[in-house]
């Protein structure tokens, strides 16, 4: 969709920005957040639907599929998380399925959704059209409309991945305090790795960096992988007809990446939470 009137840089910028409401920090990326909530809702509703009519007899095909995922997650949780806890498995399942679905949106060709959204925007929401685009052609108006900026792959937005990581961070703190007590947690931060009172400041700096590095690396890893993949998709979309085989190859490769990244995020969450819950 490299329109002659739009520069390569403009095209890529168009795809990497998002439909945003608000200013400064309190702005909200409507595309990423909206789609992540839609996808999460699809996940919980479909799974809850299966859960409601789950039968211990012969399961239907969808129930089989859901059970496969649930068992897979449950197995990984059981192998990694040794403390008895009924919250950890639902956390792992939610993270895995949600990130998987958000990653999955990347396989939708990069121009489909902007064109459809922009088309509806131009047809039904004229205030969304910038003033400078008033005398553009219809196609250009579509691409200039605010709605066409909407992003549908939420995990290519650093806010989304860091938002997930923030959730995991809060869970790490919660698990640490729940299982070790506030004092135990503070003691662990102060007296590892060097168990001597004079080294408490040093230990604190070291442990706090370790603590903070967990969610940040978690969020940035997912973001980096998916963002890089998205940029490659955009570059492939720029090369004209040759994009068809290239896109196919890259998309097939990404089937692996999206599952793998969701799995890694889930596993690391389980590992971090198990580290938080276990007494050393």
């Amino acid at each position: 969709m490299a329109d002659s009137n739009i520069s390569v840089q403009g095209y890529i910028n168009h795809h990497l920005s998002d439909l945003t409401i608000g200013e400064g920090f309190w702005a909200v990326n409507v595309g990423s957040l909206g789609w992540s909530i839609i996808l999460g809702t699809i996940f919980i509703i479909s799974f809850a639907w299966v859960g409601r009519r789950a039968t211990a007899g012969v399961p239907g095909k969808f129930q089989c599929f859901v059970e496969m995922i649930v068992e897979f997650v449950g197995k990984n949780v059981k192998e990694t998380f040794h403390v008895k806890d009924k919250l950890i498995a639902p956390i792992a399942l939610t993270i895995f399925m949600w990130i998987f679905l958000m990653n999955l949106m990347k396989l939708v060709p990069v121009d489909w959704f902007p064109v459809v959204a922009g088309f509806f925007g131009v047809m039904f929401y004229t205030p969304g059209l910038p003033e400078y685009a008033a005398d553009y052609s219809f196609l250009e108006q579509i691409m200039a409309h605010k709605w066409s900026y909407m992003k549908i792959a939420p995990t290519t937005d650093v806010n989304i991945t860091l938002g997930l990581a923030l959730g995991v961070f809060i869970l790490i703190l919660g698990y640490s305090i729940y299982y070790k007590g506030l004092g135990g947690f503070a003691k662990e931060l102060s007296f590892t790795p060097f168990n001597h009172w004079s080294l408490i400041p040093f230990n604190l700096v070291l442990e706090l960096v370790t603590l903070l590095a967990k969610p940040i690396s978690l969020g940035l890893r997912l973001f980096g992988n998916l963002y890089a993949g998205e940029v490659i998709f955009l570059l492939i979309a720029l090369v004209g007809l040759a994009q068809l085989p290239l896109h196919f190859v890259w998309a097939v490769f990404h089937i692996l990446v999206i599952v793998l990244q969701a799995f890694i995020f889930m596993m690391l969450t389980i590992v971090y939470l198990s580290m938080a819950a276990e007494k050393h």
């Binding site: 990423s32 789950a54 649930v70 956390i91």
Partner: peptide, 30 residues
């Protein structure tokens, strides 16, 4: 792309989804 309130929104959404899964998804399927 800046860090903005989307991050907080995502964290809240995550909390809601995790709660929902804990309440209505995991127990019956398991």
């Amino acid at each position: 792309m800046d860090i903005n309130a989307t991050l907080l929104g995502q964290s809240i959404a995550m909390a809601v989804f995790v709660w929902f899964t804990l309440k209505f998804v995991w127990p019956p399927i398991n």
